Amino acid sequence: MTEAEIRWKLRSGRWQRPMRGVLVTHSGPITNIQMTWAAVESIGVGAVLGGASAASFDCLRGFDGGPVVVLVDAARHVARRLGVIIRRSRHLGSDDVYPRRLPRRLPRRLPRRLPRRLPRRLPPRTRLPRSVVDIANWAQDEDDARAVLAAAVQQRLVTVAELHRVVERRGSLHRNTLIIDTLSDLGDGAHSVAEILYRKIENHYGLPAAQRQKRIDADGNRYHLDIWYETWQVWVEIDGGHHREARQWWNELARQNAGVLQDRLILRFPVHLLRTQPERVADQVATTLRQRGWKPNL
């Protein structure tokens, strides 16, 4: 086609140009996948999706949405694109990037970025472990950084070892200490941000170390206890958003009742209390443990 023909297609509305150097050859709404392709192709060779934009194609739940994030080599100068966040990196080798790849498996509910029928080709992007570490490193606050690391492991999309390898390759990061500490906690069995926060309360206020996600048999069923002090038979339960679902709520009540019948003393805290009033949580747990015979090291 000649340039005149292309200009006519654009003027008449038959085609669209969402970004410099990219043409969409239809007049209908531009899909999210088309916009991510447009961002990558507009920036050119070596550009890849990163962070949440990349992770959404690998089925990470709860972190999709927002502007398209594109990674380029640190030496490149790239002009701004509307609706695109451009980040630079010195580490974009084959260990961190795969060019075109379909998701390993599809979740029951696809992220909002993905249509029900996936195209045969998806944009080049960072591998999921790299994407997760980048999201944590770029997060607005520390809780968000911990949340994405815990979510990726909890959803069984990545392992702690895979995330550790990314951090080692990257070298010093903006949130290097927080990421390493969080991965250490996750590797020890803390599978949620709430449990990580509780571990910090234990360390700061001198509480004994509890078992995490302890499996017990009670009332003919098998349960997991969030925080379990076996010596003193004290169980600490941390309530997050998932406890609001009716079926989950009843399961929690049945589990709690079974624990009471076996002489387990149960304390329950909302997750926000661990963030906002850690001293109150520590005081109540310490008082309960002392009532059951714990003697703190003075």
Rank of each mutant, 00 (worst) to 15 (best):
L10V: 00
R175Y: 07
N251P: 05
S42V: 09
V24T: 11
I179Y: 10
T36E: 14
L273S: 12
N251Q: 04
I238L: 15
I266T: 03
I266W: 04
T25H: 14
E230K: 04
R7Y: 09
H224E: 11
A209H: 10
D219W: 14
R244P: 00
A52R: 11
D143R: 13
P208S: 04
R88F: 06
R14N: 08
I85L: 11
R255G: 10
L265C: 09
L265E: 08
R90P: 12
Q233I: 06
W232L: 13
Q291R: 09
G189A: 05
R146F: 04
K200T: 12
A74D: 06
I85P: 13
P29A: 10
V48A: 02
S94A: 10
V148C: 04
S172N: 06
V271W: 12
V166I: 00
R113F: 08
H272V: 09
E245L: 13
L128R: 07
T177V: 14
W294P: 01
H242N: 13
D58C: 07
R61A: 15
E202G: 06
S184I: 05
L10Q: 01
R212T: 10
V260E: 11
H224W: 14
M1T: 03
G65A: 02
S27V: 09
V97H: 06
G66A: 03
L110W: 05
R101H: 13
A152M: 00
E279R: 03
L298C: 12
L173D: 05
Q213P: 03
V132Y: 04
A286T: 02
E245G: 13
V78T: 04
L49W: 02
D217Q: 11
E41A: 12
P99H: 07
Y98D: 09
P296Y: 01
R76D: 07
V158E: 06
W235E: 15
Q154Y: 12
R116I: 08
D141Q: 00
A210S: 06
R247W: 08
L197A: 08
Q256F: 11
P29L: 13
R268Q: 07
A258S: 05
I33F: 07
H77D: 15
R100I: 14
